[in-house]
């Protein structure tokens, strides 16, 4: 009683407009949770072929995941996502570095525009563009043929290679933004101090810049990994049904076979992998950030 009385006596901090600010956010959050709950509950329902109505409770849908065909799709998805994340990192770091460190304002803005604009043209436009680039009569094959480097066109469309090439370009803007933010926070004087103490450019990068941007590198890579896990249009169009990722299975099961329960299971699986990847990164990154935190 005493404690609660004291609590009451303490002057409440005024919170103008609290409800006005709070209710819309709460409504949005509830809506999203409701949508995810729908997916979750469908995962436990019996599928009746030919009917949109799902039946009673079952765990059958989860057991179905163990079939080799689904396991191989899952393995492919993981492999493609991992390769995409790593290549995206390798190609994005130099661009982010140039974007942050270029001496001229114009060059910085130019790199920024070239690197970030693709993010906003949308996935359909970009995926379609890659069909034009990678197709057997596409841009790359035409250039190679004209240069006399190949006789028959290379097969790039409908291969894992083609899908990864498109996905990496797709993921780079986000990675570049994450890495640029990390690089922008590196104290230039730390690099100068290292040089002053005898470290050449390569050693400055190896001992100072790289470790200080490691949190950005890790979080960027994991974000891209999770992102690629849920890529749909690229494997769908560039993969052309020959490269299947979880997203394509969900589409096939949900919108072609109308097997909502199994589509729900696959959706949950993708969500679980994405959350798992990000969750496992969290303690790692925060440890890195504690280590590297600039005062």
């Amino acid at each position: 009683m005493i404690a609660s009385a004291r609590w009451r006596a303490a002057p409440a901090r005024p919170r103008p407009f609290f409800l006005w600010l709070f209710l819309p956010s709460l409504a949005a959050a509830l809506l999203f949770v409701a949508a995810l709950c729908e997916v979750a509950q469908y995962a436990f329902r019996v599928f009746t072929p030919g009917s949109l109505e799902a039946g009673g409770f079952t765990l059958e849908n989860f057991a179905r995941l163990a079939r080799p065909i689904y396991l191989s799709v899952l393995a492919d998805t993981l492999l493609i996502s991992l390769a995409t994340a790593l290549f995206t990192l390798l190609l994005s770091y130099p661009v982010a570095y140039a974007m942050v460190r270029a001496k001229s304002d114009f060059v910085r803005s130019l790199i920024m525009l070239l690197a970030v604009t693709p993010l906003f043209t949308g996935e359909i436009v970009r995926t379609y563009a890659w069909i034009l680039v990678l197709g057997s009569n596409g841009f790359v094959n035409s250039v190679l043929k004209a240069a006399g480097l190949v006789n028959a066109p290379l097969t790039m469309l409908y291969t894992r290679f083609g899908v990864i090439v498109a996905l990496v370009q797709f993921s780079m803007p986000v990675m570049i933004i994450i890495l640029a933010a990390a690089l922008a926070h590196v104290d230039r004087n730390c690099e100068r101090a290292a040089a002053n103490l005898g470290a050449g450019p390569a050693k400055v990068f190896r001992h100072v810049t790289l470790p200080l941007t490691l949190p950005g590198i890790v979080s960027g890579t994991v974000v891209i990994f999770a992102w690629t896990m849920s890529a749909f249009s690229t494997p769908q169009l560039v993969g052309g049904g020959k490269v299947l990722m979880i997203s394509n299975l969900v589409y096939l099961q949900g919108l072609s076979s109308f097997n909502f329960p199994f589509a729900a299971v696959l959706s949950l699986l993708a969500l679980a992998v994405a959350i798992g990847a990000l969750g496992s990164m969290r303690p790692f990154v925060s440890r890195l950030e504690r280590k590297a935190a600039v005062n």
Binding site: A35, V39, S267
Partner: peptide, 15 residues
């Protein structure tokens, strides 16, 4: 940001 778009889309379709 983390939830795959097809999961979100599928959820709202069902909802």
């Amino acid at each position: 940001l983390i939830v795959p778009h097809f999961t979100t889309g599928f959820g709202f379709l069902l909802l």
